[in-house]
């Protein structure tokens, strides 16, 4: 056991992943049913969809929607969250609405958007963003409430301009909250985006999954899922984790 504990984290993570895949492969071989495709079959299907099919096109569509909804949700969420965290009045005004939005089912938001705005891109992106905004607000509001008054006083005493206070004193204190929101937000958004594509778009991964569902094509469904999971891992590895490291460089 001691030997395992001293292994590098990457090796342990990789080993766990391989074991999981092996178990899956063994189980699929035992059951031998098209409704439980083996990882190998999924991989081959993924290759097929990449080379022949339209996976990249649909993946790109979905990613665009994810990116748009993510940016909108983060911008609105951070702004309103800071506002609610710093002003009692604003907090009292918006709190009930926030609780309502937080508990609004994704399906209801999607249906309302599609009916009121139309079956178009704007409605789809807005419906996704609407689901994410309240959770960002909740996170950031907590961060804004916990802002260090002592450091804000430094800005006040030395007459630091408001924008500089925001950039240099306020935002760095909110980074952990923003990063947490970004992580959970990406996860939530991509889950919801697919539902909304299924409901009201004629492209994107969600739409494709709906089509495969009708044919009980589980292999393709898992291949598409794997493609998206891969993208999420890449985003985490090349974007979020380096960003996290950069923002936390000052910690002794």
């Amino acid at each position: 056991m001691t030997a395992v504990r001293t292994l590098p984290a990457a090796v342990v993570r990789g080993a766990a992943f391989v074991v999981l895949l092996a178990l899956w492969q063994a189980l699929a071989a035992m059951v031998n049913d098209p409704l439980l495709p083996s990882p190998l079959a999924v991989l081959l299907s993924l290759q097929h969809h990449l080379m022949q099919g339209e996976l990249l096109h649909h993946l790109a569509k979905t990613l665009m929607r994810v990116a748009a909804a993510f940016v909108i949700a983060m911008l609105i969420g951070v702004a309103v969250g800071v506002w609610m965290g710093r002003s009692k009045l604003v907090n009292n005004l918006l709190d009930s609405l926030l609780v309502l939005m937080l508990n609004l089912p994704a399906l209801v938001a999607a249906i309302l958007c599609f009916i009121w705005i139309g079956l178009n891109e704007t409605a789809a992106v807005l419906a996704v963003a609407l689901n994410k905004v309240p959770t960002v607000i909740i996170n950031i509001r907590e961060g804004a409430r916990a802002l260090d008054t002592q450091l804000l006083q430094v800005g006040e005493v030395y007459r630091v301009p408001r924008l500089t206070v925001l950039r240099r004193i306020v935002l760095p204190q909110l980074y952990p909250y923003i990063m947490a929101s970004a992580r959970s937000g990406l996860a939530l958004i991509w889950k919801i985006v697919l539902v909304i594509e299924l409901l009201g778009r004629s492209d994107g991964i969600g739409f494709q999954l709906g089509t495969f569902f009708q044919f009980f094509d589980l292999t393709s469904i898992l291949a598409y899922t794997a493609a998206f999971a891969g993208v999420v891992f890449v985003i985490e590895a090349v974007l979020l984790r380096p960003l996290d490291r950069r923002l936390n460089g000052w910690r002794a």
Binding site: Q150, V154, G155, R159, T164, R168, I169, P172, W250, R251
Partner: peptide, 22 residues
């Protein structure tokens, strides 16, 4: 107005240079 607080109250995420440039 210069103010020196009980604690140094430097911004931990800014370098010494950036703390002074603040």
């Amino acid at each position: 107005l210069g103010f020196v607080f009980q604690e140094p109250r430097l911004l931990p995420w800014l370098t010494v240079a950036d703390n002074l440039r603040l």
